[in-house]
Design a protein around this nucleic acid. Structure first.
Lengths: 364, 364
DNA sequence: ACCGAGTCTGAAACCGTTTGCAGGCCATGT
DNA sequence: ACATGGCCTGCAAACGGTTTCAGACTCGGT
């Protein structure tokens, strides 16, 4: 039925060991034998059984990829990057979508651990202790997250937030909002912190709104709060919520960017397709994916772990149509900035009480 | 290091075979032994090595999933459906994104064949002969495609197209366009054919435009042709091109749906987020994914293949804001229907020459 | 002619699991 | 008391590769 190494051996008149060597250590067999064996193997269409090989070598040739939600348009790009690099290194990749269920993720890691040589873990919500436990089970590379010395590829949040704040400051905005994502999300915390720092540095006032689901509907739900807060520009936790904010503002008759500027983070494909096209921070999604598996293969190849198992990727602001100079004319009455705000001391942070929780809404 | 069946056996004071039987054929071992073994196995955290098991049973416990482009928002939903059903049946799934390279797909099937028990194949472009060859290598279920007696789950194109043209006919449209997708796409051919039939039946005139890439940019590129063709409603090959058409029309100052109605196919998440929200044909994407793996496990369980290995899924038109009654007022001069057209006999088909080919544009 | 080193190859053990077969044990029927 | 048969269980052989080890052979140096 299926052709095994022994079939090839028989057909080539050699032993199975020789076939094995010919295929995986070509320089150790005689040239003539090598030629004959490879030819026969080719002709018979022989493909080594990876499971059998894995049994003895202890390597499966598989990677695992765990991510919270494939329907979030951020992820397909990183999956593609991962696949690309994995196939180049002759690995197959198991992908498992956890449906945002962070509590199940450790179990999934455990399940996968035996079947893979390493795992790329995108888990914004898993607890640090679980992360460490996962990493002790099997080689792990974190994406968009850092935890101790676990290898990771993350994005330069500070740099990205700086670009956004500079852009908005250049447009004359003095008081800006941040529609926060899930409280438990590592990226959300990082972005908020970086924004606070940058705004302080640039003399801008930051209003944090939320937390909201990292979805379009989350953004829609945030629109009211954005209006109330009296900001002239708002940053979404990601593109989806930024787009949701735009949608919510539109429903309320507020023009973007004429009255309020909106900027996103991620640069998902959709952002360039909508009207107005979204100004957003481009994260190198596919590069992150590639970098993650490259780290993983390095880890597996080296006996000692690389000295710097953390890669930080640069971001780039792409300016489109959803940001504009701060409106000079007075805004509609009910949205006008209140005088009392103006009198509060210096650049500072306020936190709106809105904590609009809603059940995660699958996007599709 | 890692706990094997022998470790469990030793700890439980039985042989490896007994452990194996206790775990996979519980009714054949004595109750007391069963209890002891399972307890020990649990305590030691034993997990059978699936590769080793697969070596002897011939089953890997893995499925493969081959699809053309994860960045196409149609696919993540079917992937999620597939995963759900696969995990329920205790399968892991390898997913491989072919980057729209139909020529490489057969090779990928060959690669995967040994490592999986079956493959879910989403390949709109693969040639029928290759499809058959793939199916001869390994159990295969086709998604959104049919070929001979290869098991498949597809969508009821005819029914779907009927719903769309009924909707448009009800709105008073008499002459509608279809922005065709890739010529080599099976779905595209099916949709075109179904549309032709339905239009003939309903006394509508159909203008086929294209072919275009199945992307937003493809749709944008089609907008000019849509205008020239003088239709009052247009159907996109999928949501992405429909949205692109809307974008292209907007650039040209044409209002949707006031001047031209647009309908998509797929009902991707984005369609409900844009303005105007897209009227579109909902395809049960996750259901299709689930159905595909259910078919696959049936196929593997049964010694004889099921008598009806083809499932056809119903669609549902979701009416949003991109369709409206045919405008009563005369359209701008250059877009007005020409008199000569009107005199041609009966409902009929015309094919615009536009064949705007462009390199596939990754969406992310 | 002999020895040693070096090169290539084959036999066999091994990876972790399942499974056919046979044997031990007990209860039952004669 | 002995044969019969049904439960359980263990031994050992697979599954398809890789790798250790030792042997065969070649070749150059003495």
């Amino acid at each position: 039925m299926v052709v095994t190494i022994r079939d090839v051996a028989k057909a080539a008149g050699v032993s199975a060991s020789t076939v094995s060597r010919a295929l995986s250590m070509p320089d150790v067999v005689e040239a003539a034998t090598l030629e004959r064996v490879t030819k026969v193997a080719e002709h018979l269409g022989y493909r080594p059984n990876r499971a059998a090989r894995g049994l003895i070598t202890g390597r499966t040739g598989n990677f695992g990829l765990i991510l919270p939600d494939l329907a979030n348009p951020f992820f397909p790009s990183v999956v593609k990057g991962i696949q690309q690099a994995a196939h180049r290194a002759d690995y197959q990749v198991f992908v498992v979508d956890t449906d945002e269920d962070a509590t199940a993720e450790l179990g999934l890691v455990r399940n996968l651990a035996k079947q893979v040589d390493g795992i790329v873990l995108c888990s914004p919500r898993m607890k640090p202790a679980e992360l460490r436990q996962a990493a002790s089970l099997v080689p792990v590379v974190l994406v968009n997250r850092r935890e101790g010395s676990i290898p990771a590829v993350a994005v330069d949040n500070a740099g990205g937030m700086r670009q956004i704040v500079r852009h908005l400051a250049d447009l004359g905005h003095r008081r800006i909002g941040y529609v926060a994502g899930p409280r438990s999300s590592w990226s959300n915390r990082g972005r908020l912190k970086a924004l606070q720092a940058e705004c302080r540095g640039a003399g801008l006032e930051l209003v944090a709104l939320g937390n909201f689901d990292p979805t379009f509907d989350g953004g829609t739900a945030a629109a009211e709060g954005v209006l109330i807060s009296g900001v002239t520009a708002v940053i979404g936790y990601n593109d989806l919520v930024a787009l949701g904010v735009i949608g919510g503002l539109r429903e309320r008759g507020v023009a973007v960017p004429a009255q309020i500027s909106v900027v996103g983070i991620d640069n998902i494909a959709m952002s360039s397709m909508v009207d107005p096209a979204l100004t957003t921070l481009d994260l190198p999604k596919d590069v992150a994916g590639r970098a993650a598996v490259e780290l993983l293969v390095q880890l597996l190849a080296a006996e000692a772990p690389p000295n710097k198992p953390i890669r930080e990727l640069p971001t780039e602001l792409v300016v489109r149509k959803s940001t504009a100079p701060r409106p000079r004319r007075t805004q509609p009455r009910e949205h006008r900035r209140r005088r009392s705000d103006r009198d509060e001391p210096g650049p500072e942070l306020r936190h709106a009480e809105t904590d609009h929780r809603q059940r995660p809404d699958r996007l599709g």
